[in-house]
Amino acid sequence: MRYAVRAGDRELTIETTPEGRFLVGDRVVAADLAEAVPGRVWSVVVDGEAHEVAFLGDDRVWVDGDEVRIDIADERTVAAGRAGGRAASARQELRAPMPGLLKRVHVAEGSAVHEGDALVTLEAMKMENELRAAHAGTVARIAVAEGTTVEGGALLIVIRSE
């Protein structure tokens, strides 16, 4: 299977062989991989070069002291993403990054917003956090009313870009 991997700002194409080798570009890499903490931390030794990799959650990875993003896609996913990735970008969903109290909604359905405009105020950890629009667009839907306690990940607002 061939994979397209993005680690931090570097991209690699890696092919796994049935013998357990890795083909990185056109280079065969013999890597000594050891799972140090089950599901979490890996020790990786490549030609004597030792690295430590910890998976922090979602797509966040710690490697040798740095925190970066990782994205792994196999060939089929990459191909599918090229065909269907376009339409979704017109719709922007604002979700609650954490549980909290939706203290205020600063916009109304149908109102135009600019990038960086405050959409809602979410109170959590004794702090009022203003959540802002990532892109300009029109508020298509307000999913939650003011004064509601929301779970992390709850859909708050949908914005449609022109």
């Binding site: 700002d9 890696i14 990799v53 998976f55 990875v61 490697v63 990782i70």
Partner: peptide, 23 residues
């Protein structure tokens, strides 16, 4: 800014990511 990592660190990250996927 996210930190720039070395080629070796990126490779190790990718390989560990694949190993984790396979496991």
């Amino acid at each position: 800014r996210t930190p720039e990592i070395t080629e070796g660190a990126a490779l190790a990250t990718a390989l560990a990511g694949l190993a984790r996927l396979r496991a």
